[in-house]
Design a protein around this nucleic acid. Structure first.
Lengths: 107, 107
DNA sequence: ACGCGTGGCATAGCATAGCGATGTATGAAT
DNA sequence: ATTCATACATCGCTATGCTATGCCACGCGT
C-alpha cells in the first residue's frame, strides 16, 4: 500500500479501530493490520502524529496507563468522535460508490 | 467531496477517463462529473496540474487541437499509461477491499 | 457597445497529511 | 549480553490537491 493511497482515509480507520473499545496506539495498529489482512501496516511516523491530531481535534481523548512499568497512552472516542465516525463512514461509502461508478465493476 | 478524500486516487480517475478515447481537459472533467453523478467535480487547479504531472511522468501525451480558434490540449494514454491504469485499478480494488474489511459492510 | 456566462487553459502559493529516520525506554527471550 | 518485540515521540521532507487569479474566445442579451 503506497503513500498517498491512504491519504484522507486514515482518520476513518483510526476511529473505526476505537469504535468497540479504547485502545493504545500499538494495539490500534495491530487491529488494523489484522482486520485488513496485512494491507494496512501503519508506520509509527504515521500512526502517532495522527492520533495526536485527532485528539487535538477533540475526536479522541487519552489517558496514560501504567501496567507493570509499560507506559501506554490509551485512546477512546469522544462524543464528537463518534459523530465524526458516522460522518466519515458515510463519506467513505459515497466516495467508494462514486469511484466504482467511474472506474467500473467491483471485484 | 472534501479535499483529501481524492488524494492518491485522482490519477486513476484521469487515466480511466482517457481509457476509451482521447479527450481534452475540460471534457475529462465533464466525463468524471457525469459518470460520478456530480460527486467528482474537479476544480481547474486540480485538473490541469494533474494532467501536466501525468504527462511529465510519461503516462499521457498531448497535442494541441485548434478547431475554429478554440485551442484545446487533447490528451491520450501512452503504452506506459495503459499499464499504469491496470496497476492503479488493481491497487484501488485492493485498497477498497481492505477498507471494507476494516470499516464494515458495504452499502 | 458592453457585460456576462460558458468553454478552455495555466500557474503561483498554500495547507496538509503521511512517511522515513531517528531517538528513547522497558521487558522477554536466547 | 544481546536481540527482539513492545511502545511512544518528533523532525523534516515530499507530494498533492485546492484557492485564487489571470488570460483568451465565443455567443447571447440588453
Amino acid at each position: 500500500m503506497n503513500a498517498e493511497t491512504l491519504k484522507g482515509h486514515l482518520d476513518l480507520l483510526l476511529l473505526t479501530a476505537l469504535e468497540a473499545h479504547p485502545a493504545h496506539g500499538y494495539a490500534i495498529a495491530e487491529t488494523l493490520r489484522a482486520r485488513s489482512e496485512q494491507a494496512f501496516d501503519l508506520p509509527e511516523g504515521t500512526l502517532y502524529p495522527a492520533l495526536h491530531r485527532l485528539e487535538r481535534a477533540g475526536l479522541l481523548a487519552s489517558r496514560w496507563s501504567d501496567q507493570s512499568g509499560r507506559r501506554r497512552r490509551v485512546y477512546h472516542l469522544t462524543a464528537k468522535g463518534r459523530r465524526a465516525l458516522v460522518k466519515r463512514q458515510r463519506d467513505w461509502l459515497d466516495f467508494a460508490r462514486a469511484m466504482r461508478a467511474v472506474v467500473g465493476v467491483q471485484a
